[in-house]
């Protein structure tokens, strides 16, 4: 597999800042809005958005993490069992504007599962979806993102890998293509 860089560290940081401004335009002071990062990789982005937003609005942004394993549609269709991650939503989402956050938007199946999963915590006022990377034209399900960091054209065999400073030492987004 050969890799090409989609976004470097500076570009990731600029993109996140832009996404934050877009969020503030729609959610103002976030008093009625919450961020929910999708496990496992969406939580890094959600936390990064949270810290950027809190600097801008000078207030706390409620942020949680949601594991969607038990709502997936591919149980018993994989070689290995699906092992869950931690869900941590220590606030009510009833009547809140929920923003689901994930790093890569690919088939749309994760978001579909997340929509089911989030509803088990109550009835939000609205649900939006934010992604750092949208892979265009490959969705299996009619779901669209409301906030997009960058759209890229890929084929199914390619793989997008998002590296975070917290786990890999630097922020970088790579596209792996079959050689």
């Amino acid at each position: 597999m050969k890799s090409t860089e989609i976004l470097n560290s500076l570009q990731v940081s600029l993109t996140i800042k832009r996404l934050c401004h877009q969020l503030i335009e729609n959610h103002h002071n976030f008093s009625k809005s919450v961020l929910i990062g999708l496990q496992p990789n969406g939580i890094f982005l959600a936390n990064r958005l949270k810290s950027n937003l809190e600097i801008s609005i000078q207030d706390e942004v409620q942020t949680g993490s949601l594991d969607i394993t038990f709502f997936r549609d591919d149980f018993r269709r994989k070689e290995k069992p699906l092992i869950p991650s931690v869900t941590n939503i220590d606030f009510s989402i009833e009547n809140k504007k929920v923003i689901l956050v994930d790093d890569v938007f690919f088939t749309g199946r994760t978001v579909r599962s997340a929509l089911d999963a989030i509803m088990t915590f109550g009835r939000p006022l609205s649900v939006e979806f934010l992604t750092l990377i949208e892979r265009r034209f490959v969705q299996n399900i009619p779901i669209k993102a409301d906030y997009i960091g960058k759209s890229i054209d890929t084929i199914k065999e390619e793989k997008v890998s998002v590296l975070w400073k917290e786990t890999n030492g630097k922020d970088q987004i790579l596209l792996y293509s079959p050689t």
Partner: peptide, 13 residues
Amino acid sequence: EVINRPIKKVPTL
């Protein structure tokens, strides 16, 4: 954690 949610059921099985 699931069985302490308002809706305690998951569709897995």
